[in-house]
Amino acid sequence: MAETLIQKIVAQQAPAAAPAAGAPFIRIEDVSLYYGASKALKNISLNLDEKVVTAFIGPSGCGKSTLLRCLNRMNDLIDNVRIDGCIKIGGHDIYAGDVDVIELRKRVGMVFQKSNPFPKSIYENVAYGLRLHGMKSKSDLDAAVEQSLRSSALWDEVKDRLHSSALGLSGGQQQRLCIARAIAIKPDIILMDEPASALDPIATSRIEELILELKKDFTIVIVTHNMQQAARISDQTAFFYIGELIEFGPTAKIFTNPSQKRTEDYVTGRFG
């Protein structure tokens, strides 16, 4: 059943844009990650193209979120983590010694699994990143806040209460606010860690629409548990299993004609 549904979704999608012929935008080369002595990611190599939505799928604990967090070096915050290998974005090794993590994170935004708006007003949530990066004038801020809220399809819902607390929004709205906050500082890449897993189906579909919209301007990497979601929104899909990359390719191929047995088992719902 699931199989046919996903195949149907994939069939409805427009054919994926042909990958750009130039160098891949994000190049993950032989990356291994250790928590203390245990190896959480095993020699992963992966190339992601610009302005493409890539989905990371796989059962829990397969390392997909861990890899995602390598891309903006959020794993640096955890003690006892060691990373081998090399990740290049736009040709720059982001783990090189002279890299400033702060500058990196300005270019690689992130949306988390659990919506985490700051306990400030809606306006201040979006303006926070802008202020951090030196935008001071009121009119610039107003314009930028409005633009990001529009891009995240939240403007019409909140324009009358910009200065009330963000905690008063519904779960789906909070998550879209987090997206607005992330895109306000105009990153090149947006990482999304199961952004819709805590939301109801309607809110989820709004987030998905938004992702398809954002694809025009941003490179998006999304971790998801929901295979139908991956099928609906992504151009490329990577399947992980216990720290290994099993298969990577165009979404349509992964879901309809996977070359690995384990991928097939997973996407057809035999485990996971």
Binding site: A20, G22, G91, A96, G97, V99, D100, V101, E103, K106
Partner: peptide, 24 residues
């Protein structure tokens, strides 16, 4: 689709900027 050289794309902050060093 013509392959675009990465450096010509307009970006708010160039990627070269990330090399300011962590001691900066």
């Amino acid at each position: 689709m013509t392959p675009e050289p990465k450096s010509e794309q307009p970006r708010p902050h160039g990627w070269i900027g990330i090399h300011r060093g962590h001691k900066a």
